[in-house]
Amino acid sequence: MRNAADSTVPASAAPRTGAVASAPRSRFAAFLDSDLLHSFLRSRLVVLAALVSVAIVGAAVLAPVIAPHDPYDLKSLSLLDANTPPAWEKGGDPNYLLGTDDQGRDILSTILYGTRSSLAIGFCSVLLASALGLSLGLWAGYVGGRVDTVIMRIADVQLTFPAILTALLIDGVALAILRHHTVEGGKFSILVLAIGLSFWVQYARTVRGVTLVERNKEYVEAARLIGIGPLKIMFQHILPNVLGPVLVIATINLALAIITEATLSFLGVGLPPTEPSLGTMIQVGNKYLFSGSWWMVAFPGLTLALLALAVNLLGDWLRDALNPKLR
């Protein structure tokens, strides 16, 4: 009797907890069984690219923990250590595994910190570009008419200039405006702004194209029928359907943004040498290349190439994996 009463309580409670617990589990199971994961594991190159990306991003995030020296700490720098070759070369110092630069900073530590700033600028500018491109593309595609014409003609004009030129222009204008009030981290924001504003076009065009298709579907009409406003329709109903292609572009653009930042820094308009990024390191190292100090440009350059390649491979794979026509 008591047993029966005991068993009825958990019996009625069990399905409820079971239902709650099964929702995330089934989702994880669905992920394990998805086409995406299968196609990911099938390609060794993609797995390798993912591992390299994760390793580089992880190392950059953990830079303060794993770096042997702090390149920002001016007290620890000594000019006597400058231009030390890598540890295995003649005259190398085991303290500085990959050698030092012209100020005596440890190359390995500087790369770790530099990747950090490169990745941060890359992520932030991709975020800015995708947010801007997404909003403008949704607006142009959903409203259409004159709004569409104006936004897309601006996009077309910007597309005729190389992105790096646009970034240089925005960088220069922003610097000229902000010359008189230097803000903390100002250079970082200017770079994000410059790179972000030069990459929004691709998002806008893609999102507009998808929106043009989606806005004529009957589920949008069903939403209009119950009096839901255009903003809510754009961001709640249509947005989830355009996120797929945006994710692909964002991954590919991340590599491009990192390279653009490096290019800007290499050209001398990026981050200053006191807060090194990969591009700044390559710029500085480039000056010493012909005096035989190859390690100052080779290692940051290699890191940049590896990072860009890995992220690009991931983006390419994602584009193909999410394209049902190529399956």
Binding site: K217, E218, Y219, E221, A222, L225, I226, G227, H237, P240, N241
Partner: peptide, 24 residues
């Protein structure tokens, strides 16, 4: 007033594949 009127009429669409948001 418009919203009150809208509540009283609804529509069933032709294509059941396009009339439901695939991400909802």
């Amino acid at each position: 007033e418009r919203q009150k009127l809208r509540r009283r009429l609804q529509m069933i669409f032709q294509d059941p594949f396009a009339s439901l948001n695939p991400r909802w």
